[in-house]
Design a protein around this nucleic acid. Structure first.
Lengths: 229, 229
DNA sequence: CGAATACTTGAAATTATTCAAGGGCCGTGG
DNA sequence: CCACGGCCCTTGAATAATTTCAAGTATTCG
């Protein structure tokens, strides 16, 4: 059963602190948008249509270099948002977005949304805090790419994606997109996972599932100490 | 003549849209902080003391990997702010900060500043927009590092730093810090600048000053087309 | 002026990429 | 139900970009 536009907005983490009538206002301006698998949602440098709230499906935010190389900036899942920054700042989309699966979104158009921000202090405050969290996540990604080598990056990603308790990782995208996100080629990611598997730190069940078998050692690898065997 | 704490806050780009009484409130909570050259302002993972507004001097925001490698995340000049994100989000400093020159700041302590954000809608809105700009700049940096090779990165940095009209670049930090910012070693930066100089796209006057002699070609280099000579 | 630090340059080493080819999974259609 | 074609993933070998190491020169600060 597909989520209603209201449900999409209510379930969004960015809006979890809002009061009912504030939510109402957002629901009032929201436009429902559906995308089939592989459909382009918006293109880099196009005017930003507004803030997208993701209900079902998955979206890949990516950038293309003139050379043709692609970088996956974010992988957004249900409850997440995208194009927030461009919608708020009023500039063009800094990246492209594509639906990786059949996807349902609520679109909060840029102008009414900015008006709501101007009128509604709570909304503004909530978004500010939400954005701060987002920036931190982003800084971590940058530092990962710059300060860690391939194997540390992959180890850190697995630990981060598994969450605090779990030792089971479900990869949220094709490996070549994950690789691009971590600034690796898919070949390097493949080789790196094999090394981690061969040294007994993880087990690659099927293509999408990875089991962490030695979390302590994996943490050491993430911190730059690969145990020489 | 050193700027007063009030002047520091009035001249800050982030607060340029604020009305006088809103500025007053910030000035009221501000603490003046001075740092000598090379002095650590705060350390990565320490509790965030608040939002720093930079009056005079220069500050380097950087991160250290366990391996010892350093990455310069930002170079902040007069009128800029730092530690905004941690102050707003209420988490620990994601990086360290060091004064590169004798530096004067106004510190807006985290708790009163957050209170001001809660009370003052204009302030909140201004900061939200300011932060959106900052995120965009940051995304550009990440895409630079990931999608461009060394020579394109340097060319792009020079064009960006020169501004729209000017063809004169004044480097805001030691070359090894610039190199780290662009995720290069200082050796690679040195070699890259020499290549650009030898091909006649730039002229290295003295250590700190670079003159752009062929802006069109430099743009092409930034877009990944290095003219094979 | 002198010591410390920053910058440049060349040669060697290394990591990750590129190129090339084979294997595996999945959905479609017979 | 099985065969076919397409795409994704894996693996190995060769390549290339950047780093590291080492040494010398220039600059800056006290």
């Amino acid at each position: 059963m597909p989520a209603s536009t209201r449900q999409i907005i209510e379930r969004c983490r960015m809006f979890s602190r809002l009061a009912p009538d504030q939510l109402d206002r957002l629901v009032g301006m929201a436009q429902r948008r559906e995308f089939e698998r592989r459909r382009l949602i918006f293109r880099q440098d196009a005017p930003c249509p507004g803030l997208f709230v993701l209900g079902d499906g998955r979206v890949r935010i990516y950038n293309l270099a003139p050379s043709g190389k692609e970088h996956v900036l974010r992988l957004v899942g249900p409850g997440g948002t995208f194009a927030e920054v461009a919608a708020i700042g009023g500039f063009a989309c800094p990246a492209s977005a594509e639906a990786m699966q059949p996807t349902t979104c609520a679109l909060l158009p840029a102008d009414p949304f900015k008006q709501a921000l101007t009128d509604d202090h709570e909304l503004c405050l909530g978004l500010l805090v939400g954005m701060a969290m987002w920036v931190r996540h982003f800084v971590v990604l940058l530092e990962d790419i710059v300060l860690r080598d391939a194997i540390s990056r992959v180890a850190h990603y697995l630990l981060d994606t598994a969450g605090d308790q779990a030792d089971e990782v479900v990869l949220p995208a094709m490996k070549r997109h994950l690789a691009s996100h971590l600034n690796l080629t898919s070949e390097t990611l493949s080789r790196t996972l094999r090394r981690l598997d061969e040294t007994g730190l993880i087990e690659q069940a099927d293509g999408r599932h990875i089991h962490i078998t030695d979390i302590e050692s994996l943490r050491q690898v993430a911190d730059g100490m690969f145990p020489e065997i």
